[in-house]
Design a protein around this nucleic acid. Structure first.
Lengths: 215, 215
DNA sequence: CTATGTGAACAGCTTCACAGCG
DNA sequence: CGCTGTGAAGCTGTTCACATAG
């Protein structure tokens, strides 16, 4: 479509960081910015910033830099967050509840429209209060996903329940999963999975601390 | 010390995944495993598994594979999670509360010993109930960190408060930070920072969904 | 003179393929 | 034989340096 060239995965990840930083800049009234300045704020080189952005088109103005509001709009477009996407949450434990209360969803173009759990004690509960989202049985999953055309799911169930719950989500029609369970999901390759494992992140810190100290 | 060779950053990240998977295997009674089997469970090649492990020493037994309990022990040692580390949490909002209730800390060798917030309404509150951890004022941070020798901190404050809170933590003696605030912290290079930004992860999914569909 | 966009050089990571050990 | 450990090859991503545009 726009560019057929191969785009490095890390570049796509950084796109979100650029957007985040640009929003901070525009919030501070900034109207234009150079690759150098954007890079410094994110601890990246100016060349990196320019090359990353260039993968997706021509955004800059030589001699001037990038116009912040324009670049924000174009990045949102590229990332697909310029229109609202519906999201469901499976697993209403501690983490699931915290995520359901997370205001950032709306800011990034997402709307949580349903929540599921397998514990009947939670059915009907509204989380968070006032949101209108009520916990439903897993049996309803397929019906709700189809009816509301939900393609994005957040998975916050215990490790042993994760693979099975993920399969249910995919069978119902979910196409992308943000997985917080500490397991590697085995799904069809056309389903996008991003995993966030708190334990893994903690271990990385522990390693870098002990590794660095005995250098 | 053990190996002076340069170790790729991605290899260190995967070390945690190997450990996680091995714990699942040992929980299922498995005593030995090949690089092929471990790789399949994590969607990695067998060569990748072997090379990653080889950066840290000789763990395998040719013709046999790896002995699961032995490898687990050695990985924990390498990651530094074989002994308990004290952790503090700064920011007792939704996410902070969820993390304070996270049982995985103990499993990975971490113990949350203190929680801080700048909202006086929260001072003295016990989170989670029964843990013995009570929310304290940020003014107490320095004293507590020094007294308890805490080197690891989890940061769950709003974006605009993050840089300042991080600087307070570092000034108090914290050496590594797990940052959940959507900002790039600017700290001395000898401080380890790992960031987890839910918004960024959501955007990656959104991109891969829209990007894949119009391919 | 300033700052982008980009081919070319470089560095880092992964895969390959096989020697060597059990 | 089966499976590990590892140089060498191949590939991907980053940095450099400069032509180009305002």
């Amino acid at each position: 479509m726009e560019k057929k060239e191969h785009i490095p995965t890390p570049a796509v990840r950084r796109l979100s960081l650029y957007l985040r930083q640009l929003e901070l800049f525009v919030g501070a009234g900034r109207q234009k910015i150079s690759s150098k300045q954007l890079g410094t704020a994110l601890r990246l080189s100016d060349a990196q910033v320019r090359k990353d952005l260039a993968y997706f088109g021509q955004f800059g103005h030589p001699g001037i830099g990038y116009r912040v509001p324009e670049l924000i709009q174009r990045l949102r477009r590229i990332l697909g967050t310029d229109k609202l996407s519906k999201v469901l949450v499976v697993g209403v434990g501690n983490l699931g509840r915290a995520l359901l209360s997370f205001r950032g969803f709306a800011k990034h173009g997402f709307e949580v429209v349903a929540a599921f759990d397998c514990d009947p004690a939670k059915f009907g509960e509204e989380v968070p209060l006032g949101s209108g989202v009520r916990v439903q049985s897993m049996n309803e999953l397929s019906k709700v996903v189809r009816h509301q055309c939900i393609r994005l799911g957040v998975l916050t169930v215990p490790a042993l329940a994760a693979q099975s719950a993920a399969e249910d989500m995919v069978a119902a029609g979910v196409r992308a999963i943000l997985n917080f369970a500490p397991v590697t999901l085995q799904l069809k390759p056309d389903i996008s999975v991003t995993s966030v494992d708190l334990g893994v992140h903690l271990e990385q810190l522990a390693f870098r601390m002990s590794g660095a100290s005995l250098g």
